[in-house]
Nucleic acid binder design. Structure first.
Lengths: 217, 217
DNA sequence: GTCTATATTCTGATAGAC
DNA sequence: GTCTATCAGAATATAGAC
């Protein structure tokens, strides 16, 4: 199984079109990733088959085997694709006031009202994450994702401590708490009908951050 | 699909041995549930097959179809079995001091050191929960489980408010926060290699409860 | 690069003997 | 209640034409 991040597609890639994106055309690999995304939304991870993906791809099954050596290979590539999309749609923006940054991140990760696109990527990530229980490559990827989330929040908290707007808390501990709470609430949204839970957590989390970081009550 | 909680096994049950457990013998249905548990641990939900289960059961595949109408039927029965086991091993104990009760519940749900049996049931529940994304019956069950967890914590908090040991907080909001945080940390344990995360969350959660419920810092 | 056709294995499920 | 034998369909993957 190929998990080298430097290799965009996989070992079966013939090496042409080394860097797409400059043209308006999407590469075949990108189109396969998009097709996999749709197939995963429609069928779920367990019922995801090469036939499903080929259907969304609107090409034959055997075409997929030209671009990827195996189903496993394709899915590992897709995991990286989905993780990248997740990070792009939730992280990274110019830094401003630390508390505003925290609130912005919370809103990105657990929006009060979810747009369809965002709900879809969350659903897919939720399906993929559960595979980490039995799949080591997936487990590595989600370890990295959570590490990145914790590091992002920890950095914001430390910035707030340095500029004097936050109290001197254990930034890692606070970051771990926030990530666990957000992940739990996001899981609730993906796996239960408890529709009021995310809003309650949002309110409680805002209160927690205000109390913990600014000492208010 | 049969989801009637009053019907212990399923529609295919012939009705004999209406109430096992009085004898030392485990019923065939119980043995099938145990076999499913082991097969699920070994193969994961996606690769779980009737053949896998029969192997652990040490009987033929067709025997399973005598006791359950279909694979779906068996899995819904297993979901109820696993949920019951989860609740038995984590909830319910004689009430004592509210803060001690909360700490006890947190330790049960997110133990600092996990015994093998407890890790196994958590792993299986994690696998099952992810199926809620695409399976309505599973989604209902996990909505009920989270409802029960929130209600349990809310009741403890309200008891603490009544006896004067806790401040007058929004008990539902606090309970939702704690459940989300615990579920997130439990998911991290099941789906990542971030081994220090649960302990960090435990410390932060204890601090959160002390600050929120008793106004200390 | 993409296709059709096919090999092979495994799946859930059933028939019928005991 | 449990077994063996078997079915029909779907799964991953490959061969070879174009």
């Amino acid at each position: 199984m190929n998990v080298d991040p430097a290799d965009g597609a996989d070992g079966a890639d013939r090496g042409d079109r080394a860097d797409a994106g400059d043209t308006g055309q999407r590469s075949t690999e990108e189109r396969i990733m998009e097709a996999t995304f749709r197939a995963l939304l429609e069928h779920g991870y367990c019922d995801l088959s090469i036939a499903n993906i080929a259907e969304e791809f609107e090409m034959s099954k055997s075409s997929l085997y030209y671009h990827y050596d195996s189903k496993d290979d394709l899915l590992v590539a897709f995991l990286r694709f989905a993780a990248k999309r997740f990070e792009e749609t939730t992280l990274s923006r110019p830094p401003s006031d630390p508390m505003a940054d925290l609130e912005h991140l919370v809103e990105k990760l657990l929006p009060l009202e979810q747009r369809a696109e965002q709900r879809e990527i969350q659903t897919v990530m939720s399906e993929l994450r559960s595979q980490s229980v039995t799949n080591a490559a997936f487990r590595e990827e989600f370890s990295d994702i959570d590490d990145l989330l914790v590091a992002t929040i920890r950095d914001i908290v430390e910035r707030g401590i340095e500029d004097g707007s936050f109290r001197e808390v254990d930034s890692t501990r606070v970051a771990e708490h926030v990530v666990a709470t957000l992940n739990g609430a996001r899981a609730a949204r993906a796996t239960t009908n408890r529709e009021t839970a995310p809003a309650a957590v949002r309110v409680s989390l805002a209160s927690y951050l205000d109390t913990t970081l600014r000492g208010r009550r």
